[in-house]
């Protein structure tokens, strides 16, 4: 009987957590784009810029330009680093390279993310 009660409590708890998460997600998705209400304008602008100047792989632009790569790097930085901790300051390039190698292991960031973030953080 006790194990049944425990299972019931588990079930109710999981359902409550999932419901809370989905409520929060839907509430955030329905918030209008209002800077005063907490929208991160920089992120939004960055997203648009990155889309506009996305690295082109057409024959006329075989290599992505530096500006687009830096913007993409900033986007990857914002998406990856703040998942766990506050945005770090800029460190000297040789230290930054080591720290990003550490993050490649610790946070499982992809090789491409590491390259773009290193370029963004050191140039």
């Amino acid at each position: 009987m006790k194990s049944f009660q425990v299972k019931m409590r588990h079930g109710i708890s999981v359902v409550l957590v999932l419901a809370a998460v989905f409520l929060a997600m839907s509430a955030a998705a329905s918030v209008p784009a209002n800077p005063a209400a907490g929208e991160n304008v920089e992120d939004k602008a960055l997203e648009t810029k990155a889309k506009d100047s996305a690295p082109s792989t057409t024959a006329s632009h075989p290599v992505p330009d530096d500006k687009a790569m830096r913007l993409e790097g900033e986007k990857r930085f914002q998406a990856n680093c703040s998942r766990c901790h506050a945005s770090p300051p800029t460190f000297p390039p040789r230290m930054m390279a080591t720290i990003l190698r550490h993050m490649r292991v610790r946070a499982n960031i992809t090789d491409e993310d590491r390259k773009l973030i290193l370029r963004y953080m050191t140039q």
Binding site: H10, V17, A24, M25, K44
Partner: peptide, 29 residues
């Protein structure tokens, strides 16, 4: 589970753990 909406400077993190041994189970949000 981790979620960081772009619209607000909010981080939501959660974890659930359950063991078959004597150490029970639990979650945090």
């Amino acid at each position: 589970f981790i979620w960081q909406p772009y619209r607000v400077p909010l981080s939501v993190r959660s974890e659930y753990v359950r063991t078959s041994g004597t150490k029970g189970s639990g979650y945090w949000v």
